[in-house]
Simulated assay, not measured.
Amino acid sequence: MRLLSLWEWFAALMLGCVEGLTEFVPVSSTGHMIIVDDLWFRTSEMFSAEVAVTFKIVIQLGSVLAVVVLMRERFLNLLGLQGGQGGETGERRLKLTQVVAGLIPAGAMYLLLNDWVDRYLFSTETVVIGLVLGAILMMAADRFRPRQPKTETVDQITYRQAILVGCFQCLAMWPGFSRSGSTISGGVLLGMSHRAAADFTFIMAVPIMAGVSFFSLLKNWSYLTPDVLPFLATGFVSAFVVALISIRFFLKLVHRIKLVPFALYRLALAAVIYFIVL
């Protein structure tokens, strides 16, 4: 196992931080990764395109682990491993079957269209389009949301809301649209509070992202060589730590400022990518 150069440590740290900061905030992690992707071109020749793909899978798992840690009691309740009521009111709690219902639309869409999306939609141009369209959806959600949310907490979500939010999650297959941006917007339009929509978004994201990452990692298992493990581990840890901080901050912030500020940021990011990267 060879030692990483100073630049390689820096690249792993920075890429992990970008992933952790943006994966669960509605600003599009894909859009940000495009901006910092040239870090790959300045790392050593040992990091091939296949290693780059493996690295991105690993740092995504770091972000997923952060959600599991932050919402561990919720997941234990869903799995029946912890007693007591999960809801703030003590009346009822989110059920595992509701989460599964929300996952069905995106899961079916992934099985049907994933290869087509990988082949035709992953480009800088489509990411810019996704950033803009996602921003418009987020502004529309804040503009046309009910004055008084019917669903204040995640434990009050109905099966109908769960399934429809799952349909909004399908929009995230378009690169740059943002999983959290599309699902939180959908939840708000369906009468959820911003916090309830965000909580449900994060809960749904864990199984689908973990599953996709797991199978992708199996396909790229041969690239987990001793020489690249320090690089992967650095990215994983930095993504995990930064995601812990950013998710906590976002859940407190979204209740106060809603979605429009994030939408305006996405439009600015789209402009930066269009004029500088393209």
Results as ranks from 00 to 15, higher is better:
2 R>M: 14
5 S>L: 07
17 C>T: 11
20 G>Q: 02
23 E>T: 08
25 V>A: 03
27 V>N: 09
30 T>Q: 02
30 T>E: 09
33 M>W: 06
35 I>M: 01
38 D>M: 12
42 R>W: 03
45 E>C: 12
63 S>M: 00
64 V>S: 06
75 F>C: 00
76 L>F: 14
79 L>C: 11
82 Q>C: 13
102 G>T: 06
104 I>G: 08
106 A>R: 05
120 Y>I: 04
123 S>D: 02
126 T>M: 14
138 M>G: 09
139 M>R: 10
139 M>N: 11
146 P>C: 11
149 P>M: 02
153 T>V: 03
163 I>S: 07
164 L>W: 02
165 V>T: 00
168 F>I: 03
169 Q>G: 07
170 C>D: 09
176 G>W: 05
181 G>M: 02
182 S>M: 08
193 S>T: 08
195 R>A: 12
201 T>E: 09
202 F>P: 01
203 I>T: 04
206 V>A: 03
207 P>F: 09
209 M>G: 00
211 G>A: 03
211 G>Q: 05
225 T>G: 10
227 D>V: 07
229 L>Q: 05
232 L>R: 07
233 A>N: 10
233 A>Q: 02
235 G>Y: 06
235 G>V: 01
238 S>A: 07
242 V>T: 01
243 A>N: 02
248 R>Q: 09
249 F>I: 12
252 K>D: 15
252 K>E: 14
256 R>E: 13
274 Y>V: 15
277 V>G: 09
